[in-house]
């Protein structure tokens, strides 16, 4: 195939190259996430035949669907984690990966996020957080910073940002991290850690939307956001020494939680195993 020569071998292994180029806007953070994720998979030497991607509705759901090879379930808005739950229970040996946006995961699907973390089901969720509903043209989302004017907060948002990663950590996930598209290498490392963890893993990736969100905050270039991320980020270790007031407007990055709670599907399997043995005896 002609494409084989054009693309990096890594891309040929993991991407549906016939679907390229991507549909993302110029400067969009989704490209960085896609690239970083590609590197993460390749370095872990995962077989694309063992991957299931489950996505929702929104720009970042397009990262795996259609660009990554793997079985793909492109679901309804907000529900990918719920669909993924059914997939993982029936296919525990496959890596079940959710990549979707803040509107999907923290907004309309927020309840599924909390309960999947509580069950500690072995799913890796990568929430691409661009602080707004970008695909629909830039409306306030649960992660939009306080006071920002959007299509639906013309006088400034009266709501506060949801700190999704902290919520997931509190809900019981085995692994939680947050990085930005400025922190490419730690982001890739966090993706790999998340994919290796047994249990619910969650990586929040703050990623720029220079088109829909950018137009509202007058930051039209991707690099404007990367500078902001660099400036506002605080490592979690340092953040723990800071007061709430000092942390206002900051982005706490790093590994927020790591624990070793029992995983959901393996517990279900143990119950079934008990019946199997009873039956055999």
């Amino acid at each position: 195939m002609k494409e084989d020569k054009i693309f990096h071998p890594r891309a040929n292994k993991y991407l549906r190259t016939e679907m390229l180029p991507t549909a993302f806007c110029p400067g969009c953070g989704c490209g960085t996430v896609l690239n970083g994720f590609l590197q993460a998979l390749d370095e872990l030497k995962l077989d694309p035949k063992e991957l299931v991607f489950v996505t929702g509705i929104g720009c970042s759901s397009w990262i795996p669907s259609p660009y990554f090879k793997g079985d793909t379930l492109h679901t309804t808005h907000g529900r990918p984690i719920a669909f993924a739950t059914g997939v993982k229970v029936m296919k525990p040996d496959m890596k079940v990966i959710v990549i979707a946006g803040d509107g999907d995961i923290a907004g309309i699907g927020g309840n599924h996020l909390i309960h999947a973390a509580r069950r500690n089901i072995d799913i890796s969720v990568f929430m691409v957080n661009n602080w707004n509903y970008g695909m629909t043209g830039g409306q306030v989302s649960p992660t939009t910073p306080f006071g920002v004017r959007t299509g639906t907060t013309p006088y400034g948002s009266a709501e506060h940002q949801l700190e999704a990663a902290e919520v997931v950590a509190a809900a019981g996930a085995n692994y939680v991290a947050r990085w930005t598209t400025y922190h490419v290498f730690p982001m890739v490392k966090a993706m790999q850690e998340a994919l290796r963890v047994k249990g619910f893993s969650f990586v929040e990736i703050i990623a720029q939307c220079p088109v829909s969100y950018g137009k509202m905050v007058k930051m039209r270039r991707g690099s404007d956001f990367l500078k902001l991320y660099k400036e506002k980020s605080v490592k979690v270790e340092k953040a723990r020494q800071m007061s709430d007031e000092e942390l206002e407007g900051k982005i706490v990055v790093g590994k927020l939680k790591e624990r070793k709670r029992t995983e959901f599907v393996s517990t279900l399997r143990q119950i079934n195993e008990r019946f199997r043995q009873e039956l055999a005896n």
Binding site: T85, V87, M90, H112, I271, R276
Partner: peptide, 27 residues
């Protein structure tokens, strides 16, 4: 569980139908 099947109580009905669709695509 007695016939090596799985029951999951979901957080609502939306996730319940979501999960069964996911389970079917997983065979």
């Amino acid at each position: 569980p007695r016939s090596d099947g799985y029951y999951v109580q979901m957080e609502d009905e939306i996730s319940s139908i979501s999960a069964i669709i996911g389970a079917v695509w997983a065979g």
